[in-house]
Every structure is written in structure tokens, then in C-alpha cells.
Amino acid sequence: MSALSDERILHSSPLRRLLGRPELGSVVGALAVFVFFAVLADGFLRPTSLSTVLYASSTIGIMAVPVALLMIGGEFDLSAGVLVTSSALVSSMFSYQATANTWVGVGVSLLVSLAIGAFNGFVLTRTRLPSFIVTLGTFLMLTGLNLGLTKLIDSTVSTKSIADMQGFSSARVVFASTLTVGGVDFKVTILWWLALVAAASWILLRTRVGNWIFAVGGNKDAARAVGVPVERTKIGLYMGVGLGAWISGQHLLFSYDVVQSGEGVGNELIYIIAAVIGGCLITGGYGSAVGSAVGALLFGMTSKGIVFAEWNPDWFKFFLGAMLLLATLLNAWVRKRAEATA
């Protein structure tokens, strides 16, 4: 028995523990990028610049959290980007057309967003098609609906202003206000982002549902065999993406007072990239909400850092691609270490 115990001690060494953290790669990467722009970009360290970086990160981060949970649960959602626009459109158009209090539109939008998420999950679990196909279908349908319905109802590609409607100002406070802390302006989305990361971490690490999320992504059949409700878990994860899209969509609407119906296309990949850079395994079963936040922060730092450094923003995509590759390689390596059979 002693020989067996000895080889087990290796597993719990602090280094191995650290290597086993899903966020490790992204934290190292984020530090490197931070130092890089702190040195090269004038004014990157100014509080107002950091506030801008945090705002850019939060708009990605709010969606990266549910997308990361979904990825840990073993699935993708390619409709996440346009779903944000759909949420904003529903809220705006419902309030305008029904001449209702803005909050009624916001509520309807929440229901619609959750329903679309549930639809994705339901079709996925019923048909057993890959989520890539199912959500690609939803992505295309929503893209068409966003444009088509907006043109049909408002005769242009953007919605009518709802700025003078009842409840607009209070909704703006909740979804798009600016808070001043120590003379620096911070957008309220940063708070939404932090709250989502905290809630998602709680669910993943402390609750039964979190256990199920890891299990359905790691080995669906084993999970089903011990009584985990696999279908319900997956549908719930898609509804989580709907919730994130609703928050992001309301921010989009109340930052201005109109919504461009063609927006959002391509953002779904950015959310996925943030989650992957943050250590989520594309194959499921591994990752963290904090990691997705670090991934979003990396994204925000790079996109704004390039502006502060006064470089051509075209370089942003190059950096993003390189980071994605590096992160994925690092994750694969970490996983191999963690899975290595004793």
C-alpha cells in the first residue's frame, strides 16, 4: 500500500494543483498583455483608460459567462450574438407598438430570450443533432427575423426611439448608467458582469446543478446512468445564454434609444473565444466562470490597448487569433497533465 500512497503524493503537489486550475493560462496571458500595453501604450494605466478597458471587457464578459457554462456542459451556441440584438429589438418594439411602459417591454424581452434559449436546448436534446448545426440554424433564423421584422414594422433597419417613453429613464439607470467612483466613471455593466461571474461560480462549484453541468459535458452517458437529468441540464444552460443575451440586449437598447437590427453577427465567436482563452475545453467537462472573465478582460485590454498605442486596429484580429491558439495549446497540455494515468 505504501508504494501506492507514495505515487499519490505527487498528485497533490502545489505545482500540480496550480497547473490543474482551468484559469491558469488566461491569467498568465492577461498579465503579459497588461504589462505589454502598460509599457508600450501611453496612458494605458490612466484610470479613465482602465475604466474603458473594463467596460469593453464587461460587454463581452456578460455573455462569455453563460457561454462558458454551456461549453463546460459540452455544447455551443452560435445564436448567442444575434440573440442579444433580438432581445433589444423585442424590448424596444414591444414597448413602442403597445405604447406600454418600457419595463413591460423589458419583461417581455426576458421571456422571449429565455424561450429562444429553451428552444435551442429542446431541439438539441430531442433531435440529438450536434449543437453546431442546431444553433447555426437558430443563428440564421434570428438574423433573418431581426432584419425582416424590423423592416416590416418600422420600415427601416433600426427601431424607433423610445427615449420619451415611460420607464425609459429608470431602465437606463439599471442597464446603462454610469457610476462615478473616486472621480472615475464606471459603466454599470461592470457590476452586472461581476454579479454574473459570482453567481455562475457559485452554481458551478457549490451546487448540485454545477456537478451536473460538469458531468453532462464530461461524460453524458455516465451522467445519465447515475440519474442526472441530462436534458433538463442542457436546456437550462441554453436558457442561461438567453438570460445573458437579455442583459446585454437591454444595455444595447438603453445605452442609446434605438437598436440597429443587423448588429450582433460575429459576436457569438467572440464569446466562445473568451471562454476558450479562459480555459474551457471545447469538448466540454472542464472550465470555469472566472476563466471566462479573464478571457473577456484579455479581449478588452487588447482591443483598447491597440487604440491607446495608436496602432492600426486591424492588428487586433491578429492578436486575438494568436492568443486563441496559444490558449488552446496550453489548455490541451494542462489537460493531458491532469488526465495522465498514474
Binding site: 460538469f214 461524460n219 467537462g285
Partner: peptide, 21 residues
Amino acid sequence: DLAVVPLMPVWRNFFLGSEPR
């Protein structure tokens, strides 16, 4: 073909589907 989730810790596997709360 054992019904376990390889990436999950032993204790999470042990109680999977019957987690005490």
C-alpha cells in the same frame, strides 16, 4: 466500461446524481 466522468474529482463522481445538500 466504467460509468465515471474522467475529468471530475473522485468525490464529485462518487456522489454524482445523489448529491447531499
